[in-house]
Design a protein around this nucleic acid. Structure first.
Lengths: 227, 227
DNA sequence: TCAAGTTTGTTGTAAATACAACAATATTGC
DNA sequence: GCAATATTGTTGTATTTACAACAAACTTGA
């Protein structure tokens, strides 16, 4: 039971993660043993996975937060996604049998992750382990939702002006939050990376939008105003 | 067997589609009966599925070609994806249990599609039908690959200038083709919609790139030149 | 509390884009 | 073959952006 105790602090995370959805809490420990993952601790700013690496593993964020990014030749960062505890990452590359990762995963804060070789779970389906079918169903759901989310990101990025990109992103956030005000998980540089625009131009545009009365904000708390 | 004959002209498509991968050709007819889909014929320009509709079904393109698009308030089109026979569409929305579609599917040429209610296949898994497990595994693979592809699209769109967007897209095409020259499935307006830029600006940029010696093209045949 | 570092905001300028209007070229149907 | 239509290319202008440099505000840690 020494191994199990390592996972104990993250019991809540496992139970509420999409990967283990509809798997009873009692069964999770043995499933974790079956998965035989590797626990990893990362300090802020460190690369958890790096573009170009072999895409064997899949990760489950246990604590802290992390970003999926894509860096180009000149260091421009595209922030593809923001991860919270319970989120899976790099699963698409495993499931798609991609040879190497085209994205990197960076610790946005100090964090802990569980790295698992998911390929052996999805490729072989030994009836010995009854959880495999549910795991695959969960993976399906995770991938499908991420897919829909990516199409939303495409919409943000397809806007021609910084203002429209912001509005596209903000309205999605407001919709998600069910309220006209919401908090975003990014600082200005990260938001700029997320929308693929220049940071200072973004700051300037936010100012103008506030002056125009479209928007009100303080730090990372935003409110979309009527009209 | 009246029903089966309807599918007969598309035997090849089914056999080579990702959805029916690793399912023997002999078993496909009965599987099609089990799926109980609806055959639909669409003329060029028609909407096969429209944003806002309930996301119950999933589609399989049987012949012709179609585009996944997203239209904004002012009619700006974002061309999200280009479909060929055998390709599945709207599967992410079904699998993710989205209430409504955020994308539309438009016939790029006259085409035929098979519309299926995939939800009952993925939600219930009756052991009576032994194909279901393989279908789900195939769906997983389709979604994962689409996911990776969408991240590639994000990269294209994240480029700051039209030239860089073009180069990002072209280099992916060249890589996919395994050759420095390749044909693209879009006309200029569609390419502009795909990269979220103005058509005339795109035409102008292509000209400049050709003059600079970066690129050579004729109609839809492109060649990336060294240096 | 203070200093050093980080994040955010502001502004000017050069460069790139959207948009519109139109010209040139291809394609289509008869 | 020819007219009608659709697609592609070109150019000028107003708008918007990236970039750089710097100022202001906020954090952090000793």
């Amino acid at each position: 039971m020494a191994k199990q105790s390592v996972y104990e602090p993250f019991e809540q995370v496992f139970e509420s993660s999409a990967l283990f959805a509809d798997i009873s809490r009692d069964e999770i420990p043995s499933l974790l043993t079956c998965l035989d993952g590797r626990l990893k601790t990362c300090t802020e700013g460190r690369y958890i996975l790096m573009a170009g690496e072999a895409a064997k593993g899949v990760g489950l964020l246990l604590s802290g937060s992390a970003h999926i990014i894509q860096e180009d030749y000149w260091g421009n960062r595209l922030l593809v996604d923001d991860l919270a505890p319970g989120d899976l990452f790099a699963e698409a590359f495993s499931c798609a049998r991609e040879k190497q990762l085209s994205i990197s995963v960076v610790a946005a804060t100090d964090c802990k992750v569980l790295l698992v070789d998911l390929l052996k779970i999805i490729s072989t389906c030994p009836s010995a382990c009854s959880f495999h079918r549910q795991l695959i169903a969960n993976l399906l759901s995770i991938l499908a939702r991420k897919n829909v989310q990516l199409v939303g990101r495409l919409e943000d990025l397809s806007r021609r002006s910084t203002r429209d990109k912001l509005l596209s992103y903000f309205s999605r956030q407001a919709l998600k939050e069910g309220s006209s005000h919401f908090e975003i998980p990014f600082n200005r540089q990260q938001l700029a990376d997320y929308l693929a625009v220049d940071r200072s131009a973004l700051s300037a545009e936010l100012s103008r939008m506030q002056k125009s009365g479209i928007l009100r904000y303080q730090k990372n708390n935003f409110e979309l105003l009527e009209q």
